[in-house]
Structures are given as structure tokens and as C-alpha cells.
Design a protein around this nucleic acid. Structure first.
Length: 982
DNA sequence: ACCGCCGGGTGCC
DNA sequence: ACCGCCGGGTGCC
């Protein structure tokens, strides 16, 4: 493989990054509220809660001016209404469009006058269906439905009434349109307004329904297996072969997209009843939503290497061939496996930037002609055959041996059996088609007759997994295959589209993509038509307003993939961005998505749910760790046992604990009496924090400035102090905060007056973009550059207890006892020591050193480079490698692999049981060979035991993807009572 | 006839 | 539009 890596300084030094974060990412209140801490994820401040809309009623109107527009409709077809305030004849104009967005006509002016007011003031969403008369020449009727918040109903009725229009109540029309829909057939496509509240499902039911969506995903072509091309050296597991087969069949599929039928030369959408002559393009891709650890990355690499240009596997060249033909060894040092991390940087140096674009190893395989043209530049090897000869051999090979190539293909891959294979051969990729016709050799995917090219795949991922991709390409791809991979990252990245288009794979991050996109006209990524775009951790684009999302949606690609472990994180809303990326008509338009799926499903409409189900089923593949393939679990992991070890405090510790506890209870009781628990919520959390710390070690509990007496209207200076205190509190309490804007871990954190923390560059960008009325992305309160507070970063972890003699604690003793016992049994055994308090980890280092344990450490404050080192050292089985990893609970992301450990010691319980589980998965994952034993230390009769109780409740409540209803203030209060034994 | 009626011209917003 | 509307032509029965 030829690697090129354009990078900034840090990356050149050390490009390998391991995941240091993962999803969830959304709302991190600066003060983590209980429900944040306990994992009922995310309460993103949504613009409007469209889900609470009810149907006000319906009204029959007229569409006029049909003959002036090209848009046509069918009887019973849905139409969209769109305001046209700049219409020269009538500022109240309301356009009527079909599902394709083509204008059909206008709403007649009298009615438009009413509608304009209603629509402009957002009193209601107005939707239309043309019940009949679709083929009329001049006007046609339209049945309008008015949806909105209950409190706006009267205003809408009044407004319509002013002009003499009366809404028919919802019930009535329901009957009416059931009648019409029967007439026009097609169950499940009637637009009968669902009678509000009649079939309202509970959140719980909805959740269950969603889970069901994924249950049927295992049948039919989703269980067919396909071998990867030989270029993939790692054997695929059965479920990965299934995913490969499914992905290839998706990429090559020739069927109509979901909800489209062919009827007498027309393509007919069964949801909107829209019809058109031109065939709607199917999604050549979809959503791979496997749980983490099932190998989405490997599977994707297999797809890239097995299905370029539609169905053809990549032939593997024998090493001898390649050496004979291409004098590469001097230009590009072969990438040695197990080489040290900086290899990419070295590679860059070795290959020299200005030449790198025409390195033979990169261009020769796929672009022989091009390579020939540039020959003098790169044919540096003097010890190989003369240039002419090289060329000849190359030509000869290419031209004379296509049958052999085919044979090899046949042998190495089943894909050709796919019916799409044949058709794919007839239809070469876009770029090569172009070049064939013109016969020019100017751009990349040029090749000789019969020579395959991959086509360029763009992979976009969070920075934290970028290096994982690089690693995995190296691990899984035959070194004999010269895959051109360009890491589009860092200030040196080439903005030349031609450079990118001649790659097989371009890797970049969401942030780079978004920032290029922001710099208008200077995004080469947006100038190319990619063979394939892959979004890793694809839920990153679930916020439709985020710059990243917009940048991603604007990419031009033939095949589109979303990789995610969490396809529907909060609600259906998240799905829209994904569908929009997949370019699935008509859901690409948010209004249509909302109207045809989101609202019906939220209201409990069965038809809507059916549609959603079949939609998901057709574009998604999801397996969980517990999914089975042919009766066997996809992952057979070693066992995982969790033990709780109860700790009894010494008298001295207990005394201290209880004195603090009594003090706290008194304070909290006061809040209860004042009914001000929630306003003092932060203080309560602070008090709880102290108690938790005391359970671990007395030194953890530094004087938390009891801010209980600060009032809301304190002086600016007090406010400032308080906010900074808050920021420090959270940053130091072990929760690895993320910036809600870039979704990365905080880089140069600042706090707003509304107490939300972002990266300084991120929030500054937001403020600059929105100018005067900039709002906090999390709570929509106004923010300005002048009231951002920076964290006096240096003080964070520097306070030590100088000169004080080491004092242990009951918990530390228990830990050390266990570790020493383990070491006696097996000196090689490796353990994770996990805490939410990084300071506690620091304290634990003392007895570890005393007892001669070699340890590594991983926490949020470390640089990437430090982390990589720590992980490498710990994972190594070399003599003298650390047997202990001190791990901050939330450090690392999904990619973090600590399978060398078979023991986990959880020093303090987490608020969120899911966070614990995730942490355990760092070692209990693919690659773990031993049973994993987890020990949770819990101090008896303490806040820790109470936390366990709440964890249990949380687990019951949240056994699924949708158990994230915001916990009520009542729940919060009850939780506080439980925690404090009140 | 400062009306009615006729019939041609015409037509979204 | 096989309508409505406009405005010019016209005018007892």
C-alpha cells in the first residue's frame, strides 16, 4: 500500500490516534444534570417540537393556473404548499408543488390571503391532497389539512372565518378520505387524517415498535454470504461476509427505491402517489448499523476492495509480478507490518511531496498510461530494467492477459455470481466512461482496456478514528495490492481535485470537510464525483443545521454509506439527515419526510409505522452483539462476570464521611423545605460529589467551595467565579466532556453565561457567523464574545498535597490486596483500574509503585501521542510491559481496545450504568481470549450503595434505544432523596 | 339607456 | 373555461 499523509506537525510526529471519544456528544449541560449523568441521553434544544402538532381540520380549496406550469399530479396525490411572498401580482401567493418539487399551480387568491397569514405566522402547517380532477386544464380541487399546536387552533379558525372559510372538523374528513382512498386502492397510502389521540402510543410502546424494526433484518439476502476479494487478507467472519454480500448487492442494485412501482411506463410513488416518466434513482448504499465491535470498518474495506466499478473484485498481484513490472521499491518503502507509529510521516518524507502525486506505486497499477507519461520523474530505480522495457512489460501484461485476470477473479470471489455483476461490466464507472469516449488521458481513472480501477472512495470519520482506518487498511489489505490512500488532513493537504481523484481512497474528517465547505469554492471534496462516500460514525450528521451535515449532504457520490452503531439515537428525527444523505426520494425534503413518516409514526398511525419499517428494512443492516448467524451468536466472547466487593470504612474514615454527610443532609433538607432543590441542583451534586470522593480516598475531597449561598443575581465578579468554578468542577470530576459543536473532546474550553461549555474556536465561529443575535447552540440563550469565560487551565490538576505522607484508604487497600493476590497467581495478568476521578488514579499510582507494579495510564488530559503510547505499551505482551492500566472512566471512545486486560477494577460507581458497560467493553470485545472479571468496589452504607439502587432503576427503565425520555423533576428529587437517605 | 341584454374576448398569482 | 367576468354594442313588440 502506498500511503500519503499530509499532516500538521503533531501528526507527523505521531499519526496514530486511537479513539478518544465516541458518540452521544450532544448536550452536555455544563452542570451535568442527573439525567445526563445517568445516561438518559440528550435533550437537544430543538427548534420547534413539530411532533406535538394536531390536526385542526380540513378545507377544500382550489388550485388555479394549472396551464402555466409543468408540474402534474395524479388523483389522490399529495401536494406541498409553499408561500411565494415575492410574487409580483399578490404577496399572499401560495404555490402548489408536487412531490418532485415542480409547481402545479397556485392556491386561488381569496384562500391564499388566509393561508398566507396562517403560514407566515406559523400558526399551522398546511398540506394538500388533490382528491380528483388532477387532469383538469385550468383548476383543480385540493383538500387542505391544517396541522399545528393546539393553542394556535382558534387563531387559525378565526383567520379562515374572516374570509368566510370554515374548517371541517378532523373526524368528518377522515371518513371522507377513507372513502376516496378505497376507490383509488393501495392500502397504507390513504391520507385519511389519523384521528388524533385515538391510537396514541406510549413512549414505551413506540420504543418497542422501534426495536421490532430491526428484528426482521436477518432474513433473505441479508444472510447470503460472499467472500471478500483476495486483496483482503483477513478472513471475514460469517456475519461480515453477510454484510459484504448485502452491501455489494445494495451497491449494484437495479431495483426501484422503496415505495416506487413501475406502472405502464410510469414510475409511481406509493406514498405520495406521485408519478414520473424518468426512473427514480435507487440508493446505491445504505446504513450499516451493526453494534460496535462487529467489524464495520473491515467490512467496508472489503467492499472497497471487492466491488469497485460495480461488481469487480480487485485482482491480487503476485509480489514477483509487481517487482518485475514496477520499479517501486526505491520510491516507496514497503510498509512494514508492526512498524512504529510514525511510519506515515516517514513515508511522506521518503516520497517527497512534490513527487508524491505521481509515485509509480500509486499510479502504475490503476493508471498505467499516466504513469508512462510521467515516467522520467519517478523511474528512479537504476538497478531495474530500462524504462522502455518496463513499459512494454506493463502493456503486454495488460493487453494479453485479460482472461487470466478473469480467472483469478472467478477464483477469488463470488461476487460475479451476482446478477449485477454482468451489468456492472457493461457500465463502467462514470469517470472511465468519460475517458473512454474522449480517449484522453488527462484524468485519473484512466486505464487500459480490461484494466480495473477502484474508483475513488471518500471516507469521512471523526478525527479520533482516523488512525484506526489507516491501521485497518494496513492490517487487512494485502501489501501486494497497491492501494492509493490519501489522508486529506492537516494544513498541507492538497486542494487539487485531480490529486484526489486519482486515489483509491481518500480519508478525511467531518471537521476538515466542513471547514473546506465553509471556505467557499475551495473544497476539492465537493468538486468531485466520488464512486463512494462512507460516513463513519454517521450519526454525527444527525443535526440537520450543523455545518458538517450541510457539507456532507452536498457531496456528490454514486454510492453512499453510513456506518453507525446507533442509527436512531433520540428519535426519528435523527433518521432524516441520514435518509437525506442517502438521497431517498421524497424523504430528502424534510417536509415530506415529516408528513409521510415522522408525524404519522409519532401519532401512532399504523400505516406510517409500516412504511418506516419497510424503509428501514430495505436500506439498513443491523446486528447486535447478541445477533445470531445460523443459530450461532455473531460474536462469541469469553464470559464477563461482575462482582461487587463491599468495602467497610475504617472508623476514622467512617467518622469523616458521616460528619460531611450530616452537614450535607442539613443543607439539602433546607433546600427541600424551601422547595428550592432544583435551583440548587448544582450544589446538591457538589455535595454528592464530596461524599463519593470520601468513599474513595480522603485526599480527593478538596475544599469544594460551598457555593450554596451565592444568589442568582450576584455581582459580575461573583458570577464569573461561580461559572469558572462550575467549569472546573465538571472538567475535573472525571467526565470527559465533549464540545457540542464539533463533537470532539474539548479543545480550549470556555464557558458561556448560560453555563455551557464549548471549544473556544467552535463557539467563536458560531458567534461570528450569527453576528448580533448569536444564540447558545445548546439552550438558545444569547451569547456574545465578551461573556465567554476561559478556564484558567493550569490550576486544574496541579494542587497536590506536598510533603504529606502517604495515607491509604480502605478502598485502596482492597484494590492492592486484590492486585497482589492476582499477581501471585499469574504475574502476567493485566488489569484495568477505572475511576471517574483522575486524581484518584494519581493517588493509586503511589501504592502501585511501592508494590512494584508497572502501570500505564489513560485519561482525558493526555495528548493523542501520550495515549497511543500508553495503549501500545499496555497491549504489548513484552516482558516488563505494564500489567495495569489506570483508566479514567470516560477516556477513549468506541475504538479503544484494551483486550490485554482480563480484570477490571471499577473503583467508584458511575451515575450512568451504560458508561460502566461501555468501559467494560474496552476489554470485553473482539480479541479478548480470557474470561473477564469485573470487580466493583462499593462502600457499605454510603452514597455508593444508593447509586447502585438508582442504576438498577435506570437499567429497568432504559432497556432499549428509546428510554431517554427526559426524567421529570419529580424523578430527580426522588433520586436525590434516595442518594442522601432522606 | 345614469338601464338591461347580447355575445365576443378572455382567463393564476 | 360546456364557466364567470369584463366591457363594448346595442336598444319596443
Amino acid at each position: 500500500m502506498a500511503w500519503r499523509f499530509m499532516s500538521n506537525f503533531e501528526w507527523e510526529l505521531d499519526p496514530d490516534i486511537y479513539g478518544d471519544r465516541h458518540y452521544n456528544a450532544f448536550t452536555r449541560e455544563f452542570y451535568p444534570s442527573l439525567e445526563d449523568l445517568m445516561g438518559s441521553d440528550a435533550t437537544m434544544v430543538t427548534e420547534e417540537d413539530t411532533d406535538s402538532a394536531i390536526l385542526f381540520g380540513t378545507l377544500r380549496g382550489n388550485v388555479v393556473g394549472l396551464r402555466y406550469y409543468t408540474g402534474v399530479v395524479n388523483n389522490n396525490e399529495m401536494v406541498a404548499l409553499q408561500r411565494e411572498p415575492n410574487n409580483a401580482y399578490d404577496k399572499n401567493a401560495v404555490k402548489v408543488n408536487n412531490a418532485n418539487g415542480d409547481q402545479v399551480g397556485h392556491i386561488k387568491k381569496e384562500l391564499a390571503a388566509s393561508l398566507a397569514y396562517i403560514m407566515d405566522n406559523k400558526l399551522a402547517v398546511v398540506e394538500g391532497v388533490v382528491p380528483s380532477g388532477a387532469k383538469n386544464t385550468f383548476t383543480m380541487p385540493v383538500q387542505l389539512s391544517f396541522w399545528g399546536k393546539a393553542e394556535n387552533k382558534q387563531a387559525v379558525l378565526d383567520r379562515l372565518n374572516m374570509q368566510g372559510f370554515n374548517l371541517a372538523p378532523p373526524g368528518k374528513i377522515s371518513e371522507f378520505s377513507v372513502g376516496t382512498s378505497k376507490k383509488y386502492g393501495k392500502a397504507g397510502t390513504s391520507y385519511s387524517a389519523p384521528v388524533h389521540a385515538a391510537v396514541q402510543m406510549t413512549t414505551e410502546q413506540l420504543k418497542t415498535e422501534f426495536d421490532k424494526l430491526f428484528e426482521d433484518l436477518k432474513e433473505d439476502d441479508k444472510t447470503r454470504e460472499v467472500e471478500a476479494a483476495k486483496a483482503v487478507v483477513t478472513p471475514l467472519l460469517p456475519h461480515q461476509k453477510q454484510a459484504l454480500a448485502w452491501m455489494i448487492s445494495r451497491e449494484n442494485n437495479k431495483e426501484l427505491p422503496p415505495f416506487w412501482e413501475e406502472r405502464e411506463n410510469y414510475f409511481y410513488n406509493t406514498i405520495t402517489n406521485f408519478a414520473e416518466k424518468t426512473r427514480p434513482e435507487n440508493v446505491l448504499g445504505g446504513i450499516l448499523a451493526d453494534d460496535m465491535g462487529l467489524g464495520k470498518t473491515l467490512t467496508t474495506i472489503a467492499v472497497i476492495l471487492s466491488n469497485f466499478h460495480g461488481g469487480k473484485p480487485l485482482p491480487v498481484r503476485q509480489k514477483s509480478d509487481q517487482l518485475k513490472i514496477f520499479p517501486i521499491k526505491k520510491c516507496v518503502p514497503a510498509v512494514k507490518k508492526d512498524q512504529e507509529a510514525p511510519r506515515i510521516g516517514l513515508q511522506l518524507n521518503a516520497s517527497d511531496t512534490k513527487e508524491s502525486e505521481s509515485l509509480p506505486s500509486q499510479s502504475s497499477r490503476t493508471h498505467p498510461k499516466r504513469a508512462m507519461g510521467k515516467k522520467p520523474k519517478y523511474t528512479v530505480s537504476s538497478d531495474s530494467e530500462p524504462e522502455e522495457q518496463n513499459t512494454e512489460i506493463m502493456e503486454t501484461k495488460v493487453q494479453k492477459t485479460p482472461p487470466a485476470t478473469r480467472k483469478r477473479r472467478k477464483a477469488s470471489c463470488d461476487i460475479q455470481e451476482d446478477k449485477a455483476f454482468a451489468s456492472a461490466l457493461e457500465e463502467p464507472a462514470i469517470s472511465s466512461k468519460k475517458t473512454k469516449k474522449k480517449g484522453v488521458v488527462t484524468i485519473q481513472h484512466k486505464k487500459n482496456e480490461g484494466e480495473e480501477t477502484l474508483g475513488t472512495t471518500l471516507i469521512i470519520c471523526p478525527l479520533s478514528v482516523l488512525s484506526n482506518w489507516i491501521d485497518q487498511f494496513e492490517q487487512h489489505v494485502d501489501p501486494g495490492v497497491h492501494l492509493n490512500i490519501y489522508v486529506y488532513y492537516g494544513s498541507e493537504r492538497s486542494k487539487d481535485p485531480a490529486v484526489l481523484s486519482r486515489q483509491d481512497v481518500v480519508l478525511t474528517t467531518y471537521n476538515i470537510l466542513a471547514s473546506d465547505y465553509g471556505a467557499r469554492g475551495n473544497s476539492p471534496l465537493h468538486k468531485l464525483k466520488w464512486l463512494r462516500v462512507v460516513l463513519d460514525e454517521g450519526h454525527t450528521i444527525r443535526n440537520p443545521n450543523a455545518q458538517q451535515t450541510k457539507a456532507v449532504l452536498d457531496l456528490d457520490a454514486q454510492r453512499r454509506w453510513i456506518l453507525t452503531g446507533t442509527p436512531i439515537q433520540n428519535s426519528l428525527k435523527d433518521l432524516w439527515s441520514l435518509l437525506s444523505f442517502l438521497k431517498l426520494k421524497p424523504f430528502t425534503d424534510r417536509d415530506w419526510w415529516h408528513r409521510t413518516i415522522q408525524r404519522p409514526v409519532t401519532m401512532g398511525d399504523q400505516g406510517g409505522l409500516k412504511r418506516l419499517q419497510s424503509l428501514i428494512n430495505s436500506i439498513t443492516l443491523r446486528r447486535t452483539k447478541t445477533s445470531k448467524v445460523k443459530g450461532k451468536p455473531v460474536l462469541k466472547l469469553p464470559e464477563r462476570k461482575v462482582f461487587i466487593q463491599h468495602i467497610t470504612l475504617t472508623d476514622e474514615e467512617s467518622q469523616m464521611y458521616h460528619s460531611v454527610k450530616n452537614e450535607s443532609i442539613a443543607a439539602v433538607k433546607r433546600y427541600f423545605n424551601d422547595r428550592s432543590v432544583l435551583t440548587h441542583y448544582a450544589d446538591v451534586l457538589g455535595v454528592l460529589l464530596r461524599l463519593r470522593q470520601l468513599c474513595c480516598h480522603p485526599w480527593l475531597c478538596t475544599s469544594v467551595s460551598s457555593s450554596s449561598d451565592t444568589e442568582a443575581n450576584s455581582t459580575p465578579e461573583e458570577l464569573r467565579k461561580k461559572l469558572i468554578e462550575k467549569m472546573k468542577f465538571v472538567l475535573s470530576s472525571g467526565s470527559d466532556e465533549e464540545c457540542a459543536i464539533c463533537l470532539e473532546s474539548l479543545n480550549f474550553p470556555v464557558i458561556t453565561h448560560c453555563a455551557h461549555v464549548f471549544c473556544k474556536p467552535c463557539i467563536c465561529e458560531v458567534i461570528q457567523r450569527e453576528k448580533t443575535n448569536a444564540k447558545c447552540p445548546l439552550c438558545r440563550k444569547e451569547v456574545g464574545l465578551e461573556n465567554l469565560l476561559e478556564c484558567p487551565s493550569e490550576e486544574l490538576d496541579s494542587e497536590k498535597k506536598p510533603g504529606q505522607e502517604w495515607v491509604s484508604s480502605s478502598k485502596v487497600n482492597a484494590l492492592m490486596h486484590a492486585l497482589i493476590k492476582l499477581r501471585k497467581q499469574n504475574p502476567a495478568v493485566k488489569s484495568l483500574i477505572v475511576s471517574q476521578f483522575t486524581k484518584f488514579l494519581t493517588l493509586i499510582e503511589i501504592p502501585l509503585k511501592e508494590s512494584g507494579f508497572a502501570f500505564a495510564r489513560l485519561d482525558g488530559s493526555m495528548t493523542r501521542k501520550q495515549r497511543v503510547r500508553a495503549i501500545q505499551q499496555f497491549q504489548s505482551n513484552a516482558e516488563g510491559s505494564p500489567t495495569i492500566m489506570l483508566l479514567s472512566l470516560k477516556a477513549g471512545g468506541v475504538g479503544l481496545n484494551l483486550t490485554a486486560a482480563s480484570q477490571v477494577f471499577l473503583m467508584d460507581p458511575a451515575w450512568n450504568p451504560a458508561a460502566e458497560d461501555q468501559c467494560f467493553d474496552r476489554c470485553h470485545r473482539l480479541g479478548q481470549k480470557q474470561d473477564v472479571v469485573i470487580t466493583k468496589f462499593i462502600v457499605k452504607n454510603s452514597v455508593e450503595e444508593n447509586m447502585l439502587k438508582i442504576q438498577e432503576k435506570k437499567k429497568e427503565l432504559a432497556t432499549g434505544a428509546f428510554g431517554n425520555k427526559k426524567s421529570s423533576s419529580e424523578t430527580k428529587i426522588n433520586e436525590i432523596k434516595t442518594l442522601m437517605d432522606l
